[in-house]
C-alpha cells in the first residue's frame, strides 16, 4: 500500500462524495428550475393572456375588415394601403412626433427643479416636493378641466394676467395655431414632478468626493455641473427620455378631453392614438384602426431601439 494508493482511495472517496453532493445539488437545481417557472407563471400567464395574445389578435385583425357586430373578413393588406394613403394619418403622426419631441423639453426643467429641491438646508422641502408631484397623481380629466379654464380666451386666468401687461391673449386651446403647444405645456407640467423624483435620486447617488476632487482641480460650479453632475446623471436622463418619448407617442387622454368635435383646433391636434380611437369607436372601422395600432407599435419599438443604441454615445454608468 503506497501512499499514493491511499491517496487514490481517499481521492476516490472524496470524488464520490462530491459527485453525490453534485447529484443532490442537481436534483435541487432541477426543482429550482421548476419552482422558478412556478413563481413566474402568474406573471407569464397574465402577460400572455392580457397582453401578448391581444397583440397577436390586433395584428391579425389589422388584416381584416369588421362589420359592426364582429364578423371579420380577411382583406389582406388593404387596411395598410388605405392607411398610407390617408393624409390624416400623416398629420397625426407629425403631431405625435411633435408631442413626443417637445415633451423632451421637460427634462432640463425637471433637472432644474430636482437640483433646486436637493439644495442643502432648503426649508419646507417636503412641501415643495408634494407640490411638484401633485400633478402626477391628479386625474387627467381634472387636469384637463382646470387647464381648459386657465386657457379660456374670454375668462381665463392666463389671458387676465396677460391683459395686465397689455397683451391680448387668444383662445389657447381653440386656436389651431396655439392649441398643440398649449397641450405640450400641460404635458410637461404633469411630468415634471415624476421626472424630478428620478433626477433627485440620481443626484443623491453622486458621491461628494467627486465634487471635492473637481474643486481641488479648480473646476467652478458651472464646470462641475457639466463635467460631473450631468455625465453621472445621464442614466436617469436616458431613462426619463425613453419613457417620455413613449408617453408622448401615446398622447391621448388630454387630446380626447380637450379637443371635442366642434373645436376648430381638433384637426390640427390629433395624435395617432386619438385618431385610432375615432376610427375604431366612432366610425366603427376596427380593422383599419388595428392596422394603425400595429404601425404605431412598430414606430414606438423602432424609436426605443434607436434610443438604446444611441445611449452608448452619451450615457455614462458610474
Amino acid at each position: 500500500m503506497s501512499a499514493g494508493e491511499v491517496g487514490t482511495v481517499e481521492r476516490a472517496a472524496v470524488t464520490g462524495r462530491v459527485a453525490a453532493r453534485r447529484a443532490r445539488r442537481r436534483g435541487l437545481r432541477d426543482r429550482e428550475w421548476l419552482w422558478g417557472y412556478a413563481m413566474i407563471a402568474p406573471l407569464v400567464l397574465g402577460l400572455g393572456v392580457f397582453y401578448l395574445w391581444p397583440v397577436a389578435q390586433s395584428v391579425y385583425y389589422s388584416f381584416t375588415e369588421w362589420t359592426l357586430f364582429g364578423d371579420a373578413t380577411w382583406v389582406g393588406l388593404r387596411n395598410y394601403e388605405r392607411l398610407f394613403a390617408d393624409p390624416a394619418n400623416a398629420k397625426a403622426l407629425k403631431n405625435t412626433f411633435l408631442y413626443g419631441g417637445l415633451s423632451l423639453l421637460g427634462i432640463p426643467l425637471s433637472i432644474g427643479v430636482a437640483a433646486l429641491l436637493s439644495t442643502r438646508g432648503l426649508k419646507l422641502v417636503s412641501f415643495y416636493r408634494t407640490l411638484y408631484f401633485l400633478p402626477v397623481v391628479t386625474m387627467p380629466a381634472a387636469v384637463a378641466m382646470i387647464w381648459s379654464w386657465l386657457y379660456n380666451g374670454d375668462y381665463g386666468l392666463i389671458n387676465y394676467l396677460l391683459s395686465l401687461v397689455g397683451i391680448r391673449g387668444t383662445s389657447w386651446i381653440a386656436n389651431p395655431s396655439t392649441a398643440l403647444y398649449a397641450i405640450v405645456a400641460v404635458g410637461i407640467w404633469t411630468q415634471i414632478g415624476y421626472n424630478a423624483v428620478i433626477f433627485m435620486a440620481g443626484l443623491q447617488s453622486i458621491p461628494d468626493q467627486l465634487y471635492e476632487a473637481a474643486a481641488l482641480d479648480g473646476a467652478g460650479r458651472v464646470r462641475q455641473f457639466f463635467k460631473v453632475t450631468l455625465p453621472l446623471l445621464s442614466p436617469s436622463v436616458f431613462f426619463v427620455s425613453v419613457l417620455g418619448v413613449i408617453n408622448g407617442l401615446q398622447m391621448f387622454d388630454l387630446i380626447y378631453l380637450l379637443f371635442r368635435r366642434g373645436n376648430p383646433a381638433r384637426e390640427e391636434t390629433q395624435t395617432v392614438v386619438s385618431l385610432f380611437f375615432t376610427r375604431a369607436f366612432e366610425e366603427g372601422a376596427k380593422g383599419y384602426a388595428a392596422a394603425m395600432a400595429v404601425v404605431l407599435m412598430v414606430i414606438t419599438l423602432a424609436l426605443t431601439v434607436v434610443q438604446f443604441r444611441m445611449q452608448k454615445r452619451w450615457v455614462h454608468y458610474a
Binding site: P54, Q250, F277, A280, F281, M297
Partner: peptide, 18 residues
Amino acid sequence: MTGKTWALVCAGALVAGL
C-alpha cells in the same frame, strides 16, 4: 415597453373579445 403601450395597442382587439 410599458404595460400602457400594450394596453392601448390592444384596445381595439380587447373590446371585440369581451
